[in-house]
Design a protein around this nucleic acid. Structure first.
Lengths: 117, 117
DNA sequence: CAAACCTATCAATGATCGTTGATGGATGGC
DNA sequence: GCCATCCATCAACGATCATTGATAGGTTTG
């Protein structure tokens, strides 16, 4: 398996390009319980913010903040319809995250013996 | 596919148990470029801290901090040997993360039509 | 034992994040 | 037009995080 998109392609180092930025943003978006619960809720299908505030019984601006983090990371998409804005999971982003993890996992299977300092 | 371990098992809500905590810790550990690069480096096999500081050309306490975050999340394990401490990837944790993502991804495939507010 | 080395931990600082309440723009119903 | 509803954004605050330099414990070497 090739390196997933999230890893730098070619020879440029991550230090100079900061190309792990997308992965960092994805994982950061996933590193909050409220956001994970939002994604969990969106598994049932697209839902508007008012619906989510009903389910979560919390302030609207709070969910709006978290939905924006998820949207910026690409994990959800929004679709305006009249007065409402419907959010839904973006499975493509989830696939990217999965590829990233799989890449780590598989490569570590053929670990080389430790080098001496 | 069943819910992976990271999701709550049984009927208890995440609000009362905070059982998404493990997932949050895993994703938080992955949400930093330095830590991702550490994991990337450890794909070559177990390495001691002095070796990593050589590669990363940075302060030892900084890497020690990040290695601890990775260790607390279960993503790496450490093995003391004499004067050195060797760190290596923990593929089991990576598998848990993968299961978590797959669970989200697969369930979202049969999305239901949006409910009216 | 002393010196050199490897590493974890601590305290302090600046940066980033999450929450809250308030404001304003946009839409639909009357 | 007017009001109610839905939502994003802003400012302010406390909390958490990442970095840095210093310190200390443990190990090997001489």
């Amino acid at each position: 398996m090739n390196q997933p998109i999230l890893i730098y392609k070619g020879g440029m180092t991550t230090a100079t390009t900061g190309s792990l930025g997308k992965a960092v943003r994805l994982f950061h978006a996933l590193s909050d319980e409220t956001r994970l619960r939002l994604l969990e809720q969106l598994r049932e299908g697209e839902q508007c913010v008012c619906e989510l505030t009903d389910v979560f019984k919390t302030g609207q601006s709070r969910l709006s903040f978290h939905l924006r983090v998820l949207k910026d990371a690409g994990l959800v998409t929004d679709r305006p319809e009249g007065r409402w804005i419907y959010y839904s999971l973006d499975r493509e982003a989830l696939r990217e995250v999965e590829d990233f993890i799989v890449w780590f996992k598989e490569s570590s299977s053929r670990a080389m013996p430790a080098r001496r300092c």
